[in-house]
Computed example of a mutant assay.
Amino acid sequence: MAATIDLDIVAPAAAPAVLADIRARLAADELVPYLGPALLGLDGPAPVPATPEAVADELHKRAPAPGRIRTSMWSVAQFIESRRHRKTLQAFMADIFATPVAPNRLHAGLAALPLSLIVDTWYEGAMAAGLRHAGRTDFAEIQGVTRAGEFRDIWTRTYDPSGAEILPEAAETAATVLYAPHGGIRPARNFLVADSDYVEVLTEIDIQSPIPAAVKARRATRGFLFVGCRFHDQMLRTYARQIMKRSAGPHFAIVAAAALTRNEAKFLADQDIRTIDLPLGAAVDALVG
Rank of each mutant, 00 (worst) to 15 (best):
T121S: 03
I142P: 06
Y159I: 05
L26R: 00
R62F: 09
T4K: 10
F224S: 07
A11Y: 09
A283W: 02
S72F: 12
A248H: 13
A265N: 05
A188P: 10
T203P: 02
A286K: 09
E58H: 13
V55T: 07
E124P: 12
V145Y: 02
Q271P: 03
A126D: 09
P187I: 10
E169N: 09
P12W: 13
G289N: 14
D195R: 02
I243F: 11
T203K: 14
L7T: 05
A220S: 14
I5D: 01
H85D: 15
D57T: 14
L42H: 10
P12V: 11
L280A: 09
L287H: 00
S162Q: 08
D277A: 09
E204W: 11
E58A: 15
G184Q: 06
T275R: 01
V55D: 04
M93N: 02
E30M: 09
A14E: 15
W74Y: 13
A111W: 00
L19E: 05
G228W: 01
Y239W: 14
A214N: 09
L178W: 09
L26V: 06
T221P: 03
F79E: 08
G144V: 03
A77R: 01
P212T: 05
P187M: 10
A214F: 09
T176A: 04
H60E: 08
A170N: 05
A24L: 13
P250I: 00
L59F: 06
A128M: 08
D153M: 11
A46Q: 04
R222P: 04
T121Q: 02
P16Y: 09
V227K: 08
G163D: 10
A11I: 12
A171P: 07
D21C: 13
P279L: 03
K61M: 11
D138A: 00
D272W: 01
R237L: 02
C229Y: 02
L278D: 00
P250E: 00
A24H: 13
L202P: 03
L59N: 02
A140H: 07
E30H: 05
L89K: 01
W74I: 10
T238M: 07
A140V: 15
R157Q: 15
V10C: 08
K245M: 10
G130P: 01
T51N: 12
V255Y: 01
W122A: 07
R222F: 06
G67F: 13
F226Y: 05
S196V: 07
A269W: 01
P187E: 08
Y159T: 07
A188Q: 14
R152Q: 14
A164L: 13
T137I: 07
E169L: 04
H251T: 03
R86E: 09
A256N: 07
P181V: 06
R189L: 12
S209R: 15
V32M: 06
A91S: 11
L236C: 07
K216C: 11
L202W: 14
A175V: 13
P47M: 02
T173G: 05
F97Y: 15
A14V: 09
A148S: 05
I254W: 02
N190S: 15
V32P: 13
G67Q: 11
R25A: 15
A17C: 09
L113H: 02
F79I: 06
A174P: 04
E150A: 04
